[in-house]
Nucleic acid binder design. Structure first.
Lengths: 214, 214, 214, 214
DNA sequence: GATGAATGAGACTTCATTCAT
DNA sequence: AATGAATGAAGTCTCATTCAT
């Protein structure tokens, strides 16, 4: 007994340990550079056990993508309170997104860097998750548009493009904030919210968006 | 007819053929999955010749990153006409950017997907090119602010933050546009220009930015 | 009958088989000319197993040097009986040395021919073993000097120099005896004993050292 | 004109430049590790020229062995003055040997380390040269024996063994003197002469050989 | 007399995966 | 539930050597 090297754990627990190790390894080394040896060692089990539970490197990676995608989605959903006005919801969603990715850098690396870089079947795997995020954002923006009585409605494709732009901007700012001393994560988030909500023109004319008194 | 298998070419020409093949292979397969065998065959030469001229897989990949990064930078610079007003310059730059990435999907894949996913030294290699783009965009936004006599002036740090956000959004959209059939470069540029210039709120209220009659 | 192709052996046994094969191959072909393929085949295993257990060609060669050096050292130590007079001890040590090198020609080739010819880190590896032999011989000569009440006493440095000369002569003669058919280990030992003990001048005057009636 | 990069040299001169480069490279890197590329570059010519003049790596190495063996032989012969008594001749020969090998470390490495370590045809190549050295030493020792009216004469095989022992002792002492601070080459030579001429027993009883007043 | 261009063959090494217990 | 033993296949890289000028 003791966490040093417990044997004979129930399957579900062992599987999670393996996936933890896999996410960490894939996230840091990349899909191809990660070796099953390293994953098994990090998980504290033998290699055949990894194969017994997860079948192959490919399936293991797919499982990682699914797990991390769902976790991210849940985090964003949980961060948004349905009753708020549109800008408040967006602000809350972005904060949740930033928080989750900062706390799970390996998982985020798996989703953002690795899953896109290694072709099928991983791109498809990621696709279905992105569809869910887009649907969620679409809902948000759609609600905002109705709130503003926008007419005619934004096309779905435009919404997807906007979501892509938002995520890209968020990633870029996160990296910049990380690499630049004395730029806080909150400042970065505010910059993004301004950029996204008010647009450059409004910023040029000194009409920024104001964060809600939180 | 055509260069079926020309032999004894001068070194400079052969090197470009090899780099073409390498960009294509790296862009489609990824850095690790691409094999030197495949690159050599696609270039129509033997493997030792690739090593003789380009030394190693790592150096070859670095050379690809540099070549593609410079080409992209030149394309954007060439697309912007200095005399225009700020939004016109931004619009021109974005069009040039999305056009170039659409016309060089493998080169863009090398920069956006592969160089980021395979650790040092490639990330640094890419970083310096990205810094140049960010500096360029920073200049543009600063000019726009002066043009608008914004008061109080935007802090330098805010300008850089906005430029980071814009560049990140552009990168993300370019990947999306490349991966999504029937999204044209011009549409992507318009989506981003709207997003950046008008901001989401204006979009919600059906007050988008209008492209200049070109 | 015989160990045609025994599978699933414990690691320690397999490692010895591999080292046997490696010593033989290195000794006959040389470090560079020996291929890991040949070693694996001679050991009756696949190449990856050799790497799994012994890591690299360099480490494998180093391990061979250490094993053979220790075996030789032990053989010489075991051959010398502490109670004898000085010339008897020297004679016994030389006999053991030449016998061992004659019985392990590949091991001796690894030590004498290959380890010296392929630079660091092998030369150092061998150096420490050689230092042990020299120290051993130094002790022997020192004992002989005390036994003879030599006065004035030999300087320590002179003793080490003599030991170096003796060891070098032995190494060289062993190589020669191994390469020359019909020169027995005992003859080689006698030649060296005469040379070392009586000196050329005494040989010239037909006053050789006499082996003890064994 | 000038030694920087003279072109169109007569064949004999070019060949010597190549052999110089080859001896240096083979001596330092070893036969296998030396590459024709490195040799050609060090010689300041293109690789095809090396092949044009010297045909193959194997022939080039053989030619190096022959050249260096002859040079060593000549040096020793030139060092010995025929009229001297036996110990004086030996002393002179050893000095010439030490001097030549110290001044031509790469050539000595080719003969002593590399030629023996890489099998046929090099071992044979070296063999004929060793035969000449042995004949020379045999003559010397034979003269000494006649001088001493030794009877019965030493067998040829014994002479070869003694020569081997001498050379081995010399090499070992040379290495030791090089690695040990404040042991001069001359001291090493004296130690060897004592060891060889007087023998350990005489040394034990304080009857060393005396170097001739030079 | 001399060389830039080019390659077939083979080396070391790694990895995903399975077998037998 | 778990693992020590083992390998087929593939990858990066080097080298002696030749061809065409």
């Amino acid at each position: 007994m003791g966490a040093v090297k417990s044997k004979r754990m129930p399957r579900a627990v062992r599987e999670q340990q393996m996936m933890d190790a896999a996410v960490r390894t894939f996230g840091q080394r990349g899909y191809r550079a990660a070796s099953m040896d390293e994953i098994a060692e990090l998980a504290g089990v033998s290699k055949p056990l990894v194969y017994l539970y997860l079948n192959s490197k490919e399936e293991l990676f797919s499982a990682c993508i699914r797990r991390e995608a769902n976790a991210l989605l849940e985090a964003v959903r949980a961060g948004v309170e349905p009753g708020l006005p549109a800008d408040g919801q967006l602000w809350a969603g972005l904060r949740a997104f930033f928080l989750h990715t900062a706390e799970n850098p390996d998982g985020w690396s798996v989703l953002h860097r690795q899953a896109r870089s290694h072709g099928e079947p991983f791109v498809s795997e990621l696709g279905s998750m992105r569809d869910e995020i887009v649907a969620f954002v679409t809902g948000l923006i759609g609600a905002a548009a109705r709130e503003a009585h926008r007419d005619p409605a934004l096309a779905d494709r435009d919404v997807v493009g906007l979501a892509q732009a938002l995520v890209g901007a968020a990633e870029s700012l996160a990296g910049w904030a990380n690499d630049t001393p004395d730029v806080s994560a909150k400042e970065a988030a505010a910059t993004l919210m301004n950029f996204a909500w008010a647009g450059l023109e409004n910023l040029m004319h000194a009409r920024p968006w104001q964060p809600p008194a939180a």
